[in-house]
Amino acid sequence: MKALYLLQLEWKKYKNYRLFQVLFIGYLILLPGILWSIVGREFGAGVPFDPVTIYTFPDIWEYMAYFGNWLMFFFLGFVGVLTITNEHSYKTFRQNIISGLTRHDFFMAKVLSILAIILFCTLYFILVGYVVGSYYTRDPQWDEMTEHAGAIANFALVCLAYSVYGLLLGVLVKRTGFALFIYMVAGMFLEKIFRWLIHKNVFDNVSMHFYPFNSVNDLTPWPSPMIRNAVENSGMRLFLTTGEAQITVWIYILLFLAFIYWRIRKGDL
């Protein structure tokens, strides 16, 4: 009941928030849109994979998880940032506490609403994969449909990770525009610069792959094994294994959530 009370509270706050509506609609359109934009296209002889596998079982799940990773970096990362920074910029975090919410409840409301959004996004992911895959796969069998369905769980973990990273940036930076900017710069450039220019030159070690955004990227790598094999045959290690990525991402999620909880519980408002 408490969970429902907190979820209803977040729903009342954000159901009329235009930016969230745009982000949700964007996700709903773009996820199937990416698949449909590929259907029937010719990629030329140089492309080292068969484009048909992108929208047919069993590889559709892994390709969708790969595309979904990019979408979620923006969509759920932004939701994570905004859900905290809005409360700071409108000073409604403070007002919620004054009105009677406990800080623990405030934290739980954010986490539960993120989990509800992830559940929705994952169910939609399954629906799109099922519909598109069933339509374009000739005579699909259950075994074939579920062969790479583990990618669904990885996609859900991707969603959770980006949301929590967003929440963390929101808690640390507080100002919406600046927090979104830092989130994007950190995810798209800073971490890569740090890994490849600083870490590699100071301490050239496999640990350079265990960074927050990189480990999330490696949860859903490009499914075609040809690229991965080519790189690894050359003696380089570019990717974490799925197991390594899962453990690393869970560690970051738990650490960041613990930090967010501590900040929400302790800080002056």
Binding site: R18, I98, G100
Partner: peptide, 16 residues
Amino acid sequence: RRRIGSLLETPNFYAY
């Protein structure tokens, strides 16, 4: 605090 009505400094509400 659910039993207290408060107005502390500036009014804080969701602008949208």
